[in-house]
Write a protein that binds this DNA or RNA. Structure first.
Length: 416
RNA sequence: GCGGGCGUAGCUCAGCCCGGUGAGAGCACCAGGUUGUGGCCCUGGGGGUCGUGGGUUCAAAUCCCAUCGCCCGCCCCA
């Protein structure tokens, strides 16, 4: 441990990687808006108890991955491990359901989980997500998934599949759960230690064990699809056929269960072969009982989240951005150069000058490196004539121009 | 939380197995080659507690132990 090092699993984003981050943020924002979704921002810190109620106290997220602390007033707080719970809390606290019967919301921000860092898995990470409150119908499931798919398309992420499953109603889910427990309990001693644990804590999760010794029993396990009632089946099929019709690369995966306790009916995960062990870069589903379990009215909802760091791993490269439009170079004429820089900034250009009193050669090199397309050279002899040199960095052509004409010349030079 | 791999200049890495020649290369950075001009080229230069701490040894970047960090798998999930 060194205090001169960022906390384990938490990373600085340096200027050169920011264009990629901004791209993700911009695409998420504009595509969300295109779908009629509105942004919501909630605190990074909530009462820890909020997450036991939403994510579920059987989940590792709550049991061993939350950053919790007591504040000076003695309240047990948590750095949010995900953002849906906070959004639902705000939805209820502000009685949004009384103002409108349908809400389309999106969020973006940091979340924290105390986990062993790996590629695409960090202790401080970012999520973008969307939630649609107020519709129990498959049309809303379809909409949020299409929103996710539209973002991926806009980001140039093509190589992925959408794993789709249903958990049915709470009733279906609990009957299926019983069947699974019966199935796995019979072979309990042959299961991996982790899965034996899960058998009592969260039996559904045995289905996504990667442990080799569990595989045969998972393959023989009953399928959720055999437990669905007619309505659940209808809901699921409507979602599936619509996504196919829309060209989403959807694959049915009856073994897909999600870690969070609150899901009902549709669950899905976006996976990519290019991510390694953390192959899911987004996931979500329907959570019809969640708002009510928080003490709100029985408002149905459906939503998803992307892991921003994982999107970044999949995104195509973003062209590097230039830092400035105009570089003002000079040999010794510091005050004159500063005045020129100020006038260019006032005219709206991104302009910088030398702060290190370096040679003209070094200043020109810096101009090139910063991506400036125009250099303005403030020289002594021209300055006496109240003029400067304007140089195009692209081909090296340059000319003298009066101070009055400078803004016009710069504008023309930049538009070439 | 468990298992494995790796940590040498800002970056990518060689040297480590077979301890001992002044700790290196490419890229990047700085300066000069152009009294006032970038990208290419040439010349020179700066920069390293060899992750950190301890041990073995006459001697450790090189061997041993611990620790921190990164990576991979389990786990978890975005």
């Amino acid at each position: 441990m060194s205090e001169l090092q960022a906390v384990r699993g938490m990373h600085d984003v340096l200027p050169e990687e920011l264009p990629r981050w901004r791209r993700v943020e911009e695409v998420c924002r504009t595509v969300s808006a295109r779908f009629g979704y509105e942004e919501i921002r909630t605190p990074i810190v909530e009462y820890a108890a909020l997450y036991s109620r939403s994510v579920g106290d059987s989940s590792d997220i709550v049991v061993k991955e939350m950053y919790t602390f007591t504040d000076r007033g003695g309240d047990l707080l948590a750095l949010r491990p995900e953002l849906t719970a906070g959004v639902v809390r705000a939805f209820i606290q502000h009685r949004l359901f009384q103002r409108r019967s349908l809400w389309r919301l999106w969020y973006y921000g940091p979340a924290f989980r105390y986990e062993r860092p790996q590629k695409g898995r960090y202790r401080l990470f970012h999520q973008y997500g969307a939630e649609c409150f107020g519709s129990p119908y498959p049309e809303s499931d379809i909409e949020v998934i299409l929103l996710a798919a539209a973002i991926l398309r806009e980001l140039g992420i093509r190589e992925y599949s959408l794993q789709l499953n249903t958990l049915g109603t709470a009733d279906v889910r609990s009957r299926y759960r019983e069947a699974l427990v019966a199935h796995f309990a019979a072979v309990r001693d042959h299961l991996s230690p982790e899965s034996q644990q899960r058998l009592v804590r969260n039996p559904l999760r045995i289905l996504d064990s990667k442990h080799p010794s569990d595989q045969p029993f998972i393959e023989q396990a009953p399928s959720i699809l055999d437990f669905l009632d007619a309505e659940s089946r209808q809901h699921f099929e409507t979602v599936y056929t619509a996504l196919q019709a829309e060209g989403v690369p959807v694959e049915l995966n009856p073994r897909l269960v999600r870690g969070l306790d609150y899901y009902t009916h549709t669950v899905f995960e976006f996976v990519s072969p290019r991510l390694g062990a953390q192959n899911a870069f987004g996931g979500g589903g329907r959570y019809d009982g969640l708002v009510e379990s928080f003490g709100g009215p029985p408002v149905p909802g459906v939503g998803f989240a992307f892991g921003v760091e994982r999107l970044l791993l999949l995104m195509l490269d973003v062209a590097a951005e230039s830092a400035v439009d105009v570089y003002v170079a000079t040999v010794g004429m510091m005050e004159a150069a500063r005045a020129v820089v100020s006038s260019l900034r006032a005219a709206g250009y991104r302009a910088v000058g030398d702060l290190q009193r370096r040679s003209l050669k070094a200043q020109m090199r810096e101009a090139d490196r910063l991506g400036a397309r125009v250099a303005v050279i403030v020289g002594e002899s021209e300055w006496q004539r109240r003029s400067v040199i304007v140089r195009l960095l692209s081909d090296g052509t340059q000319w003298e121009c009066s101070l009055e004409e400078l803004p016009k010349n710069v504008r023309q030079a930049l538009s070439r």
